[in-house]
Nucleic acid binder design. Sequence first.
RNA 1: GCCCAGGUGGCGGAACUGGUAUACGCGUACGUCUCAGAAGCGUAUGUCGAAAGACUUGCGAGUUCGAGUCUCGCCCUGGGCACCA
Length: 831
Amino acid sequence: MRYEPRKTEQKWQKIWEENCLYETDLNDEREKFYCLVMFPYPSGDKLHIGHWYNFAPTDSFARYMRMKGMNVLEPMGFDSFGLPAENYAISHGMHPKKSIAHNVATMERQLKEMGSMYDWSKEVITCVPEYYKWTQWMFLQLYKKGLAYRKNAPVNWCPSCQTVLANEQVQDGTCDRCHSAVTKKDLTQWFFNIKKYAERLLNFDGMDWPEKTKLMQEYWIGKSDGAEIDFELVPDKDNEIRGTGEKITVFTTRIDTLFGCTYAVLAPEHELVAKISTKKRLQEVNEYVASTRRKNDIERSSEEREKTGVFTGGYVINPVNGEKVPVWVADYVLASYGTGAVMAVPAHDTRDYAFAKKYKLPIRSVIKPRVGMVKEGEAFVEYGLLENSGDFSDLTSEEARVEITKKLEGEGKGRTTISYKLRDWLISRQRYWGAPIPIVYCKKCGEAAVSEKDLPVVLPDEVDFEPKGDGKSPLASSEEFVNTKCPKCKGPATREVDTMDTFMCSSWYFLRYIDSKNGEKPFDKNMAKKWLPVDMYVGGPEHACMHLLYARFLTKVLYDAKIIHFDEPFTRLVHQGMITKDGSKMSKSKGNVVSPDSFVEKYGSDVFRMYLMFMGPFTDGGDWNDRGITGIARFADRVWTLMLDKHAEKDTEALLRELHGAIKKVGEQIEVFHFNTAISAMMELTNLAYKDGMSLKSKKLFAQILAPFAPHLAEEIWQELNKDAQQGLGGNPVAEPRLGLKEEFAGTFNSIFNTEWPKYNKKYLQAATFELVVQVNGKVRGRIQAEMGISKEEAIELALTQPNIAVFIKDKKRLKEIFVPDRLLNIVVAV
RNA sequence: GCCCAGGUGGCGGAACUGGUAUACGCGUACGUCUCAGAAGCGUAUGUCGAAAGACUUGCGAGUUCGAGUCUCGCCCUGGGCACCA
């Protein structure tokens, strides 16, 4: 009988669905296992190979956990709000609602064809009111805690997408979606105060995450221990400072270099810039500030990093020595970090050094190396010994940090402080396709939150949503949407017209799966208690400093609000590697997107998914080619032939060893996501069984370990084998444990996925003999079959009887022998 | 520039705690089956060499009886950060 993959796969998909085999009973008593894969973004019309590469192995893992006896939840959904989805709709001349419905339907079909065990009864689609109602509810929780605030600030603006972007969405000064250069724009926008959680987000205790990802988040949060120092402004009849005790506060991590400060620098956006400038210099300063504002991020940080700036005419007093130092404005100082002002120490900071050289500012060394000399023509930036530093001279940098801080603290002119690179999360978007922000503005009452019972604030369908290039939110044009009543005074009010960043939708979706139909609450508290956090989370590493950071933040906020009982959402995290085509990322614009459909059509989904898993380690990814897929197709055919043919009444010892070795290895390798080596172990078993034959009992064990990888094939084999058993072909009749099978189906259909993962028997793993490797001076000179457990002496004796080994020893003097039991003997002779 | 990860046959990749380098698969060659081909089945396959043997895990050194694995220096590839004071 030939195996017909397509027909068989469709047959089982239908039977599984009819039997609700993969519908997880959340109230089941068994231990829960929440296996989650990052849900797809239906911005294109089809899943590509990268999705399969991600989803299929994760599904194999989930199936394995199920067979290990866990009550596994493996849900699926769609992250369907957002810019790319909207742009897709615009380019196809459709309403996003329509294009999303279409794309979701296609992707659902593809996902079902994969034969994965997604529980579709719990599907989540983020752009439907039943979902985004709760996204808005989440916003209100943040708002209530004072963690959502509105502020006018210079923000990142993508001129092509016509919307603002969060800091995380700017990559190399470009928009992470369309790669246009990002500019700055002053806008009043909504922010979430993620900075408040910076310290807690640095804690990864108990989290099984890739080191790389933790490091990336750590760098992104960017904690620095340092100090703030107050520099008093020197009054001048020529500027606005009139001796009122105004000061510039700078942030530094190198307070030990304070005596080397020869000027101070303000960021162009600093509030004191105009005040400190003298009348004479004011025009030049204003021109400089205006010119930096015109530059985008790329221009501002590139231009060969040539630093620019202007002197304000103002001076400040260095609190440690009373020195008067000039104040400059330069755009190499960032307004958004620290205090937006720095003390410049050109002798010990490369940036200050370059600036001082260019503008001929004094450079004074205050730190000398403990050993050696300072290199000519550059700043000495390491710690060392202080010099030219008054009473602090000769202290080490480490001592001076403490001492100088102490002194300034005593005088009220300085204090230790911590700075983070992390910025607050900007969540407003001037686009149509997103969840409306549930806020209204009333002339009388000001800003007011929509009350929870009035959610959702529905996104209206009839809106001209194409960006007009004026930077206005499309929702502003809908009078029906904008005009509303104030929740406080019931007077006329207008709605917030910006929508929320899609990352808000995806930062809590894992909570919704466990109670996706709940119309009263975002989720049931008890269910959350039982099912969360997520045990295994799989998705791309590109989300390290976006989705994964936001989801952690929101989880902590909900934890603090006592809405949930855990404060980390994902206990274990694994990233899949990227699949490229001819060395470059697959993208529609490059036209190198490979579709899985034709491969599924030709080979079936079992073969296709096994091929993806066999390519290499899951976390590596790789360049796509289909050259090797025939090898997997051959393997599947051979397994089929083996199972229906190649029968043996009794297994050989070698086969039992191979089989139990495979049971052990396959399980171990799945757990660490090394699917490639798990498959190779099964290939080796197949090769041996082809020669030796295999008993029915062993075939069943083999089918079970194959099941997570080739679910349809294994199910078909399982049913065939059990038929054989019933016909008395030599095995046991059907008597497999029926794990978690719904009562009404028990007795009608016993799926292989309701059987228990086999246990290997140690007894079969031990061989009676081993191959003793004999080396002479570290070079392999012979291999001898020997009995397990022989002594060193016996091994030496055995080795010397071999003529081909003796040749290398001959009459040479034997110095020593190294013996590794049951493995190797190395005889060292004089040369 | 800084921080991570990696570099193994013609190709994808294996290799436990330092102990047989190249498992498994692709490709290739030969054989078998066939009227023939495809598919299947079987054998071989790191390089040089007729063989004995020598050499071989990016390059160079070191530690060790023994190094793909550990240490130091360098080169290359991929990823992240990038004026964060």
